[in-house]
């Protein structure tokens, strides 16, 4: 009988994990594991790179090569890994703070280059690890430890940010819609170019509690009401779309060439030039 995917790709000795009861991070991690499995990539050729945050603890539980880096910098480290060894499949696990606040610049530059990384943003609308401060994706009006009168900053739309910066695969799903979440992560991995999957998930302990949203089970059950598919969104007015989270595949394009492939040609050219000089 075939071994269960958890037995093959997870490190059982590290479980149970550190996340709170009902925290969505485990569902996103499970989706990544299943997506990698679905693409059939070699376990020894996958590298998972994380920053710092509750979500960035994810790669500690997986049985792949991994780098647990510094806050905001996983995309920079991942770029180094991919440049040094382009045949590796590099997957970045990062929080909304990690990727769009302190790491926002790395995020947009990597998208601009269209380097072949798959970035999974564990988007729980706040800084979990440090006690629930607001992040660039916290919705307007939401309460957090640092927006006790309600957040006055407009939120980044991670997908539009990725698309505007040049990402060539962009999708969003939620922990409720786990089947499409797995599908999009798998598509992001197979896609050659910079891929971003905005994985909406819940932090019941901090964001949930301070906003009176109930426990993890209540929060996950609310996603169908809060979301609308990209197909349906096209038929709705701006007013109707207000406060809705659009889910689906936003970009899937092979029009722009990938960075490490272009760089390989530079290496070749430089080597040829050097050989000619001899």
């Amino acid at each position: 009988m075939e071994q269960h995917v958890f037995d093959r790709l997870m490190r059982d000795d590290k479980l149970p994990h550190m996340w709170c009861r009902g925290c969505g991070n485990g569902i996103v991690l499970q989706s990544i594991i299943r997506a990698i499995d679905r693409t059939g990539i070699d376990q020894d050729k996958a590298v998972i790179v994380s920053g710092v945050g509750c979500s960035s603890r994810a790669n500690n539980y997986t049985d792949f090569c991994g780098l647990h880096t510094t806050h905001g910098r996983p995309i920079a480290f991942a770029t180094g890994v991919k440049m040094a060894n382009p045949e590796l499949q590099v997957i970045v696990v990062t929080g909304d703070g990690d990727s769009t606040s302190i790491g926002g610049n790395h995020f947009i530059q990597a998208a601009r280059r269209n380097i072949d990384l798959t970035v999974v943003v564990f988007n729980n609308s706040n800084y979990g690890m440090t006690g629930g401060q607001y992040s660039p994706t916290t919705p307007v009006g939401a309460f957090t430890r640092t927006s006790v009168y309600g957040n006055i900053e407009p939120a980044f739309d991670v997908c539009r940010l990725a698309e505007g910066s040049g990402a060539t695969y962009v999708a969003r799903s939620t922990t409720y819609h786990v089947q499409s979440l797995i599908k999009y992560i798998a598509s992001g991995i197979t896609h050659k170019g910079f891929s971003v999957i905005d994985a909406m998930c819940d932090c019941p302990t901090l964001f949930g509690r301070i906003n009176g949203l109930g426990d993890g089970a209540k929060m996950i059950a609310a996603w169908p009401e809060k979301t609308v598919s990209i197909e349906k969104a096209g038929t709705l007015s701006a007013d109707e779309l207000e406060e809705k989270v659009i889910i689906g595949e936003f970009v899937n394009s092979s029009r722009r060439s990938e960075y490490t492939e272009k760089y390989a040609r530079i290496i070749e050219e430089a080597q040829r030039e050097r050989a000619d000089l001899k």
């Binding site: 009988m1 269960h4 149970p16 994990h17 969505g24 485990g26 569902i27 499970q30 993890g216 996950i220």
Partner: peptide, 18 residues
């Protein structure tokens, strides 16, 4: 298999009796 897929704690395995 949604219970297995949505368990955040890797605690469920569901299948058919062999």
């Amino acid at each position: 298999r949604l219970c297995e897929l949505r368990c955040p704690d890797f605690a469920i395995r569901i299948g058919r009796m062999q």
